[in-house]
Amino acid sequence: MSTKPKVSVYKLSSCAGCQLEFLNLEPVLLDLVGAIEFSYFPMARRRYEPGPYDIGFVEGAVTCGEEIERLKKARQECRVLVALGSCACYGGLPSIKNWTPERVIVSRVYENPALVHSIKAYGIDEYVQVDAYLKGCPVNKDELVEFIKGTLLGIRPRLRPHSVCVECKLNEYECISVIKREPCMGPVTTAGCGALCPSRGKACDGCRGPANDANAESLARTFSEYGLHRSDIVRRFRKFAGLTQEFSRGADAV
């Protein structure tokens, strides 16, 4: 019987891209497997070991009653429960449906809506207590490893709480907003991705949700000055984390 800390990975409504990042950790995957035991990880292992688990990662938004049941069970069997990715943190991409009546959304997608029992998409902390949030679409691999190391050592992992701008400046990427006058979500979005999109000359999409003290209203006014239509501003703030207090203020600002 292994004495390594036991880790479980659950999936709710999501694209599986965040748990795939575990496998994309290839260069350190063997070291990681040396440090922890993936006891429940259906995407990677056929064999499951029963709980309790030391760390549980939950991917995806909650979009139906059955998922609430599974989530509550996951909470019970995990010492530390982590929201893995923006869907689990805030509702993520599935949450864009929340501003349209459920009936309309369901009939747009499914042939027989009577078979679907979906509810509004929320992050997992709507239903259970969450110990940590790993933001992003998908999560950042370095942050994921940083989190696991911190948890194993019993110290607070360093997850950057500030804006993407800080990482943009540290890496001296050309400012998408000031130079190109493109609507970049960087100033109000949590860093930790290494300013990935701006490093490729693309405006930040806000996938990591609101940064510390995000002033979304002010940024929305700037987007408006850049010529963005009100509906586009709303879409920007609702794409990944529209349910958060900060980004909903941005969506309502103009």
């Binding site: 194993l152 050592l153 804006s163 400046k169 960087g186 940064a211 003290d213 002033n215 002010s218």
Partner: peptide
């Protein structure tokens, strides 16, 4: 009301000198 608190002004300042100290620990812990 205007400021985005993004920190860019201080990141690019030639006289700002504050730093944080962090430990980067390997996977062997």
């Amino acid at each position: 009301r205007e400021c985005l608190a993004c920190g860019s002004c201080t990141m690019v300042c030639p006289t700002c000198f504050c730093y944080n100290v962090v430990d980067k620990i390997d996977l062997d812990l």
